[in-house]
Amino acid sequence: MKSRLLEYLITFIVIITINFALPRIMPGDPFLQLYSAGGETTVSYTEEQKEYFISYYGLDRPAGIQYFSYLGGLLKGDLGFSYYFKDSVASMIFRRLPWTLLLITAATGLSLVTGVLLGSFAAWRRGQRSEQALYLFMVTISEIPAFLVGLVLLVLLAAGAGLFPLAGAITHFSRFNTTWAQILDILHHAALPVLTLAVARAGGFFLLVRNSLGTVLTRDYMRTARAKGLPEKRIRYRHALRNALLPLVTRTAMQMGAIVGGAVLVENVFAYPGLGRLMYEAVFVRDYPLLQGIFLVLAVAVLAANLLADILYRKLDPRIVSAFKAADSPAVKNRSGN
């Protein structure tokens, strides 16, 4: 485990460095804005204005000094001040983060439940007509891009049927009498974005469960369980499903990156005030400190999800722990040449 933690630490330092370098390598300059798009008017800075802002925000200092002052700030928990949005990066991120977390956790939960339920149904009925229809359906919807699903839901359920609000995360400028009413309002607004994200993700989980369960069902211990005369329910849920779910843990953690990517699109479709929408805007205006901050938070989140998966996996599958113990022992290391 120690070596795993060291790996995470090194990854973290590399990420911070890339975070710092990446926005600066991208073509474009935060204070260069000549022309606009989509009917928007923009301040077009002259050379004097550009120079003024570059020195005001300290971008005229050598890159090395900027890097170390960034690291120094990070140690103090200071993520910097946004050039374009004129606010502290940490406060901007932490006001947006809960919305994205709400979307991501709810969508992951929903797609997991759907994937497991339908996946196990498909595995048990493999080859039958109902299973084939389901398979086709799930593969088709999982291939539709998330923003398209979002638009369809927006037009059908929000604009057409009027069941859901068209945009945003709360009813603006309203006071709620009870906390419960406020929670309901938030859920009501989150419903379509969550559904959109979940539809895009469910297909992957469905296929994984279907295949993994399919493999487990052919194992010897299944036959043993049946031979012992155990009830079907117990065989399915204690013996088969539990073993088939192992890869799902890894998959969920590894999908964190992808689901954040999906959230960027979905938040833009529904004008949802999450981190993804902020990231899109920050890239658009090349706001270095904000980009650094968002990438950092996302990277930490993905790393944390991986770490969590590592730990969970050990809990679920005792074989892994013994394998790691063996790998950590000097004998194994020498043998593998590390």
Partner: peptide
């Protein structure tokens, strides 16, 4: 005078929002 975020201006106008 209120400004609220919208996903689609035409749909939101028709909605009365």
């Amino acid at each position: 005078l209120e400004f609220i975020p919208v996903s689609d201006e035409v749909l939101t106008l028709e909605n009365g929002d």
